[in-house]
Design a protein around this nucleic acid. Structure first.
Lengths: 192, 192, 192, 192
DNA sequence: CATGAATGAGATTTCATTCAT
DNA sequence: GATGAATGAAATCTCATTCAT
């Protein structure tokens, strides 16, 4: 989802906006076309179907987010806590800056539009980040809990914070505090 | 959503099942009627519209869950940690026993079918439980984090565990361990 | 359509009222039953179908009107002009006193619900009145116009006056003047 | 309702025909589409709803009639009687030539499909003609009768003649006589 | 590539009518 | 007679998608 202004991107951006405010079903391809100011047929020259449009949007959203987050990841020399914190902060930053992208992904997760292929491909973009988390978690065996479940719990907390900050936006300063403090809670829970 | 066998319940149960496996949009009212073995019109003698059916289903699901959980809540004499743990365990138990109800609620949360009224009414059924959590959380002021955000983080973790156990069901024994261990993580995060 | 209070009459009266305010199509039998405070099935113990209800209503309306008008008809000794005038006035009186009955008949006339049988049977109730009009008209051969067309023109004028007085009701005194003056116009047109 | 052959006109013409023979309710949009040989969806690309189709049809019918009649209206130098007679004859001519248009308007008048807006807009197309009639009528104050009621009586007579000639069509020669003779009756009634 | 009129399968909903109680 | 839950055919309308221009 580069920001070059061409019809394909216009369609993607308009679709993202509408899917968030109206939902997938309530957003017709006709409406997307109308608001993107292209013809109804044009949408289908770029995307095979509405379904394909949604999956593409998810893929490009995940990729965009991964790129942003990875750009903030400190070198491997840095201590683990600071590396994880950097990810935590970067993710929250991204969600605040791109609330529609975040909302879209939340809606998409529990929708019948997801294709397994899409999920897997999206997962691929995050390999490095997941690897770091898994590596950290595996060092601390907590009770009988598998790395998988721990990763899910961690991610769930992160999403909860992001969701909260999108619904109740605060001053930039305060948001930084919240991001930082919430990380400390998560760190304490899993790694102390 | 009592379990009395009458047409209304047949419709609700069939709808729940189909909404989970197919999604709201992909499940036509005709299909619900067919699988519930009632006439297409019968659905509309009990529910004003498909939309109303979905909202009713949410409301009754939430109520059912609240009733189950509250039945396990120890008396106010019990120490706070054990009271919260009882809730935690009861919720996970319920989700495992009624995976479709849980899945349905997850789908519903991010769907454009929700009516604010429904959400508020559903919230009402949980007042006692939310009150307990808020009360516990308010005793521990953690960084700059509001009770609201902390409650969201806590709930998110709980849901993550339930979701995991539904997707990867394990032996009853192991599930109890997971429920218990995950609670300890949450407790450590927020109350130690 | 006697005024005895029983379920049959309740249904007829409610139906008349609703047909006038909502139209035939927009008035469901369920609504008639509800507002008449009887069960949905009861309507069908008295009337074979919605269609039959409408036709019965027309028949009884026409009959009621004919009875009212004929009660005002002077004896055959009276001069023709006064006999016709009596009819004219009586019809307008009736329409003013029973606006829904008049409206219903206007709607019914151009509706696909009419059965030829009903029309003919209704016509039967008016035989005496039509006979008088025809007899008067036949005495005056006007141009090439058949009694049929002249009767239609006369009746159309009468209806126009009634319609006007229902939509713009005036004081009782003024309505009498209008009824009288409009009759003079009609009389001049056809019989002078 | 021009006569250009395109799908929009095909639909309008087919609808007019069916509405007249079957009534509004009994004519399904599916049937209109089938007989117009277009897809079911096509009807809705041209008309927002069945209701809108009916109202459009009324508007275009009234407009067509007004255009035809106005084309026959003599210049203002002509004496009033001849100007009114021209309108009378032109209207009857039009109704005979387009019986379905006339029937449709009669059905529409007493149907719950009319929108006030439509009526007013339609009325607008007739301004000039109504103005002429009102002007003539205002010159003759007849009893206590308002111009409004007199116009209604006059129009009602005209419609009665048209209705008669449509139901009992006669030779062109005879129809001219009837149109002419009926006008004389109306003229005598209101203006002598 | 871009267009947008046309398509037609399919969805939701209504409602006259029935029939077991 | 009276009831009203249940029926299911049929109606209106939507919308992803196509294709001739």
């Amino acid at each position: 989802m580069s920001t070059k202004i061409n019809k394909r991107n216009l369609i993607l951006q308009t679709a993202l906006k509408l899917f968030c405010s109206e939902g997938f079903q309530a957003t017709s391809t006709a409406r997307i076309s109308r608001e993107a100011e292209v013809a109804t047929g044009t949408l289908f020259t770029y995307f095979e179907s509405k379904d394909a449009l949604i999956n593409t949007l998810y893929l490009e959203s995940k990729e965009m987010m991964a790129n942003d987050v990875m750009a903030c990841l400190p070198s491997e020399n840095e201590i683990p806590k600071l590396r994880l914190k950097a990810i935590w902060i970067a993710m929250i930053q991204f969600c605040i800056s791109h609330p529609d992208v975040f909302r879209f992904m939340m809606i998409f997760k529990n929708s019948p539009f997801i294709h397994r292929v899409t999920m897997e491909e999206a997962h691929g973009k995050w390999e490095d980040i997941y690897a770091l988390i898994q590596q950290l978690i595996e060092q601390k065996s907590i009770g009988n809990l598998s790395p998988e479940i721990l990763t899910r719990m961690l991610t769930a907390q992160l999403n909860a914070v992001a969701e909260y900050l999108i619904y109740y936006p605060e001053s930039s300063e305060e948001m930084k505090c919240i991001a930082s403090d919430s990380f400390e809670i998560a760190w304490k829970a899993f790694f102390e």
